[in-house]
Design a protein around this nucleic acid. Structure first.
Lengths: 230, 230
DNA sequence: GGCCGTTTGTGATTGCGCTCACAAGCGCCT
DNA sequence: AGGCGCTTGTGAGCGCAATCACAAACGGCC
């Protein structure tokens, strides 16, 4: 298990473990078992052990994992031992909220620029920064060694924003705009879509109500038809 | 394939198809092939066909799918033919941005209440609404028939917010706070975690740089060591 | 030093989702 | 009416991820 190939699913969980581990040091814990970490991260212990085994054998049998050491190893694997410069493209409601969000900085993600295409916004201050011109994106990215682009524009403007980021050399994009972006294969793209999440919840919520109705129906008629269609 | 059991992965893609289809009606398209829809949604056509087949046989061979009809069927399946009332718990940066976000309303999600625990915020207006007291959550949820709770508090306050939502009868929760929430089995929980997404990007970004370094190294030394450990 | 309880690391197995590939079905054109 | 090109719907196969289950390894205690 020493070949470099961490499964995607594992990569997505490492930040979760990391956060739980940081909480634990703050509570003064020295070691943690896979069982304990599993509970904190909301997964099962076998998954934790398998995930961590991809990084190496950092646990001690009969004892558990050293919290500090594990934090270091996961941080290293995730590339968090260095700082990453980010640019937020689009300073609307969401862009402003992201700019103000303190959660980024604490893990080494520095918002180094805010850009917008709207002239009325350019030059205005937002969270101890000044909004710059989208037209200057290439220059800004190169000058400040920005490696991550955060797209917080409208759906209509998002593809253009992404194209410009790509041509400026950005290889990682986080998309908040409600649209599907096309990027070259060598660019990593992740998306966060608020309204899609609500729609997924809606599906399960509706199914619950439907189930409830069926159950009530059964109680009344004492016989349920097997198919909804003849 | 007529038994009610739509795979989770399919449910997560239906909103994506829905959005593409709505775009298409706006451009005046009457029918669309699985190939065309696949391109718009950024997936492959076999997946589209299989996903849609779980809803029923709504396509016409040799022609494609009727856009309007498919919109109706997906909306119905996702429970979007009715409106859903939501409450946003926590009116900080993110909560305010979510309250102002126009993307929710357009798909039948109505933000019916904003609550916070901070007395200095209670009573103040935010986006044509007034922030209410978190203490009144149960009453608000029942009076306005709220079925979806959006947690936008700090990590520390999030579990309490979730507990109160659950005890008020909310069965669907969308969590934006950077922490793992515990909820009963019959409550649907989804999470959106901004900094985790960045950390995942960081992993792949680092791997790219590492690969680049190795490649450069090879060019220089014309021989690469196989293992990093002795 | 040997034994015992605990916890890791990992082969084996299961399950789910994705992709392939093609028969079946539809409209159109001649 | 028959043939042709196109597109759907779906069984079959495959691969990744989750889970299971247990041998191996460790610390502590007698």
């Amino acid at each position: 298990m020493r070949e470099r190939a961490i499964p995607e699913a594992t990569v997505a969980r490492l930040p979760l473990y990391l956060r739980s581990l940081v909480d634990m040091t703050e509570r003064g814990m020295q070691t943690i078992s896979s069982e304990g970490l599993a509970e904190a991260a909301g997964v099962n212990s076998a998954k934790v052990r398998k995930d961590l085994s991809y990084l190496g054998s950092y646990g001690t049998r009969g004892v558990g994992y050293d919290v500090e050491y594990l934090i270091y190893q996961i941080s290293r694997e995730l590339g968090l031992t260095q700082d990453w410069n980010c640019v937020i493209v689009g300073v609307g409601n969401l862009g402003r909220a992201l700019a103000n969000y303190r959660g980024f900085g604490e893990r080494g993600f520095r918002v180094s620029a805010l850009v917008d295409i709207d002239e009325t916004k350019i030059g205005k201050p937002v969270d101890s920064m000044v909004v710059e011109d989208f037209a200057d994106l290439e220059r800004i990215v190169k000058e400040r060694e920005i490696s991550i682009g955060i797209v917080a524009t409208t759906a209509a403007a998002a593809q253009d924003a992404a194209d410009r980021l790509v041509s400026a050399g950005v290889k990682s994009i986080l998309n908040f705009a409600p649209t599907v972006l096309q990027v070259p294969d060598d660019v990593s793209l992740r998306k966060v879509d608020l309204s899609i999440e609500l729609q997924i919840l809606s599906f399960y919520e509706q199914r619950k109500s439907a189930l409830e109705t069926v159950r009530r129906g059964k109680r009344l008629t004492a016989s349920a038809s097997k198919s909804t269609r003849p």
